[in-house]
Design a protein around this nucleic acid. Structure first.
Lengths: 375, 375
DNA sequence: TAAATAAATGCAATCGTTTGCGTGATTCGA
DNA sequence: TCGAATCACGCAAACGATTGCATTTATTTA
């Protein structure tokens, strides 16, 4: 890290010569005290010759304080830019009131789908007066456990989490619930726990997408899916299967492959296209894989979408970059995030019962672009 | 929001039939109390017939507590899964010790570069025992001010921020510094404030990239830049200009355009290519713009990189999706994030002087791919 | 054996708020 | 003019931890 950066501490000369930013009147008032310490109720009380209790009540508009005093105190507070110490408030209320910090655990941060979910969570949370503490598990079980502990210590009011891939023990989650911290899962849910969750409608999303392919004239739709131990993989496959059946066709296993990344797609697609009865359409479990297919198909000289249609799943940045742009199933991560935050806040504020798992399914949306034919 | 989701609260039947997750021995211990309240020192003290002070000292391994008592107390605490209440700890120490929460303000969340920066900040922060509170300003000044206030209230120990585009007043930042909350800027720095900051080396990044184009045989390199009121725009242009000069060429203004998005790129590039003395290379201020150029060039039938080279800036997802893949200047957002966190923590912990702005420049890296020729 | 020293623990104040209860002053009705 | 009701406020105890100082007890020293 050290040698990859350039340090430049412009010392005195430039710094002193360049005009220092000046405080405007409205900001000068912030510098009232010994430069560090915040003003407290005690300060106000001392200054105004009343008790701290009176200050507290006056600031909370209690009717048991006389109008004049109340106004005097409020004005003094305003003028001296007093604001309450949340830490102390929280301590006082810890028995009754939860904090307003929501813990968010995300497997990765540099990831389109998770970014959109995080965005949704942040929007909903901040709109309702909460803030979010974000930690990434790096897909590590150990880190996930650590994070849960740290968040418990830091007194989050609840946690929104997508499990790490290799998480198979759930004590840390049970621990949290036992401590009264509600949990909401998104994306990768914990199958062993009957916890609240929000997921996208993988089944219908795939079903609709494949139906669209079939209804625009494709006869042999290939399916590139993820390994079947993941819930989403099963749901997407079922959607594919049922779309086939719904259109009166037979499931042809030679068209189904386990393949969820670009490299594999580029490797296996040429063989698929050499097959007798080659596919005339591909449905891929994510955009990355779809892009892999796309690049092979183009290289092989087929025209898209006339000879071969392709549909992805995610609708991330990638989908709009390739040529032609990719038709894809939009996962609406922002909506997923909003729903998750909505559930969590409901749980925290008591409008949702904690002993009942709230499960929501966000509908997907098929975004049609250049890799599929239009009806 | 309501009608875009499906709610399914599987009521009694399924839930009751499906096996409830059972608590293992190691987790049952968490359920020791009235199901909500955390164990406190007072509880331990009562249970063991000692004073709270003794418990506190025993748990902090004070030598003034006898060995047996210390061990007994520590064991009891361990067995009953006691852990300290950070809120109370913080309140007690508020005069001396800062919290371990770092506020991070980001203009957008669904954004490749910011994601990588956030990732870097998270990594560095968590490695050093801090957690991050994330808020997005949505490029709004008002929201930015709100967030600053909220973070001050929530007692973050410092803030890492990239300004909103339309932020032109800085009182909220001065306010923070006056309250003793150190600030570190990244990406979009505040020019009026002599604050700590970390930025990427736009100048050298561009200079190197353009030099590479020139050294692989290009003679007429076009430059698509952002409007010159932004600092980074200027730096990148200067890098371009100096690369040209360094190679003994003249700056040709007909090759320089203000253009920083795909739509504009697709609109103006055809005209560029019809010019007498058309460009044989393009340098674009970001990948998106470069992709726009790429798609036009391909449509016009030029071969890439033989007839036209293209280089972008960002090296995001996009760069690896297009055909051929895009040569681009990697901004190393993760490194930027790490440096920012490193500075902030230094400021908080006192290893860096607060009255001296720490400025770091992260070097870029040119990632060569298919849109440029190789030496 | 008494006094000095050392070791182990408790008391109580503190951090900044909130809040139940008590109390002195004012007002009211009779 | 007196008792009751009302009002406006203060006292003090929480919340859960830390810590200087006092206190108790055990041990050593003269």
């Amino acid at each position: 890290m050290r040698d990859s950066i350039i340090r430049c501490n412009f010392a005195s000369k430039e710094d002193c010569l360049s005009p220092k930013p000046t405080l405007t009147n409205s900001s000068r008032q912030y510098l009232y005290m010994d430069d560090r310490r915040q003003m407290t109720m005690k300060d106000i009380a001392r200054e105004l010759g009343v008790s701290v209790a009176t200050v507290s009540r006056a600031l909370s508009d209690s009717p048991s304080i006389s109008r004049e005093r109340r106004q005097a105190i409020q004005q003094f507070a305003r003028e001296h830019n007093y604001f309450p110490n949340v830490i102390a408030e929280q301590l006082r209320h810890s028995r009754r009131n939860p904090s307003r910090a929501i813990g968010v655990i995300v497997p990765e941060l540099v990831h389109y789908y998770f970014s959109t979910i995080l965005d949704g969570i942040e929007s909903e949370a901040s709109a309702r007066g909460y803030h979010i503490i974000v930690a990434k598990s790096n897909e590590s079980y150990d880190r996930e456990v650590q994070i849960c502990e740290a968040m418990l210590k830091n007194k989050v009011c609840g946690i929104i989490v997508s499990q790490a891939k290799n998480t198979e023990r759930y004590d840390h989650f049970l621990h949290l619930e036992a401590a009264g911290v509600p949990l909401v899962f998104y994306d990768r849910i914990c199958p062993a726990l009957n916890a609240s969750r929000v997921v996208v409608d993988d089944y219908m999303g795939t079903m609709n997408a494949v139906s669209h392919l079939l209804e625009t004239g494709c006869k042999r739709v290939a399916f590139y899916g993820a390994p079947m131990n993941m819930e989403i993989a099963k749901n997407r496959f079922n959607g594919y299967r049922d779309a086939i059946y719904k259109h009166g066709l037979e499931l042809d296993e030679s068209l189904v492959r386990i393949c969820d990344n670009r490299a594999d797609a580029e490797r296996i697609t040429p063989a698929m296209m050499r097959m007798e009865g080659r596919p005339d359409a591909f449905f891929a479990v994510n955009d990355e894989t779809a892009i892999g297919i796309l690049s092979v198909i183009k290289r092989l000289g087929y025209s898209i979408p006339e000879e071969v249609s392709i549909c992805g799943f995610t609708n991330g940045y990638r989908a709009t970059v390739c040529e032609p742009m990719l038709t894809s199933v939009e996962q609406r991560g922002s909506q997923v995030g909003k729903e998750a935050a909505d559930i969590l806040i409901g749980l925290v504020e008591g409008t949702l019962a904690r002993d009942r798992a709230e499960k929501r399914i966000v509908k997907t949306r098929l975004v049609l672009r250049g890799t599929t034919r239009h009806p």
